[in-house]
Amino acid sequence: MTDASDISDDDDRIIAAEYVLGLLPAADRREAEARLNGDPAFRAAVAAWAEDFVAMTDDWPEVVPPAAVWAGIEAKLAEQDGGTGFLSLLRRPKSLRGLFGYAAGGLVAAGLAWVVLNSGVMTPAAPEFQARIAAEDESVVFAAAYDVDTGALEVLQRSGAAAPGRSLEFWLIAEGQAPVSVLVWPNGSERESVVLPADLAARLPNAVLAISDEPEGGSPTGAPTGDVLAVGPVESI
């Protein structure tokens, strides 16, 4: 029996659990998925956690779905057959058909990045970057987390707000570059989410997030005009 206080980051039991829960950032998740293929012990640890966690759903009531759901599935499968008819002419071996299913799955994902792992259960990944944007005296504190899969920067208000008639504006400042406006905080909100354009997201590593005091509705110039109230470095998780 291991002492739980003697915890190691690379304990496979924990990585397997974090993987099943979808808590691993995308890079770690890919690493875990690569191991699923060649590491039977890790694969077994993942399957064991999946069994354990699924027990939480045991008492959830069954609900018969409306008939339209099955009709929709049949229609989608028929559509897929129509689109891939040439494949059946080629009489692909089964493994290649599986591969094709994998590729077609990617097309259907429509914006949601899923990775198909070898067991096909498609585990979600967690955000990869975070920042704590805080004033020196902690009068203004916001937490931000960026999810690589959804491309969204989620920002949570911990403390502080704009002065009456003013707005808080968030800026991403990459090293040696001008601040880029990310978000004007809607007064009264506690939580906001904004999808970052890819070129902006690419600047997250080693960047700084800052909050400035601006006229209501945000800076009129596209650059910070008021005091910088809080800053925080972007850290990879």
Binding site: V20, L36, R43, A44, V46, A47, A50, E51, V54, T57, I73, L77, K94, R97, G98, G101, Y102, A104, G105, V116, N118, S119, G120, V121, M122
Partner: peptide, 21 residues
């Protein structure tokens, strides 16, 4: 439907595999 041929590789029980997906 697309991933059914991967079921055997994961070592899940069948309901766990389906519920996990």
């Amino acid at each position: 439907w697309r991933n059914a041929d991967r079921y055997r590789a994961g070592g899940y029980s069948p309901m766990t595999w389906l519920i996990t997906i």
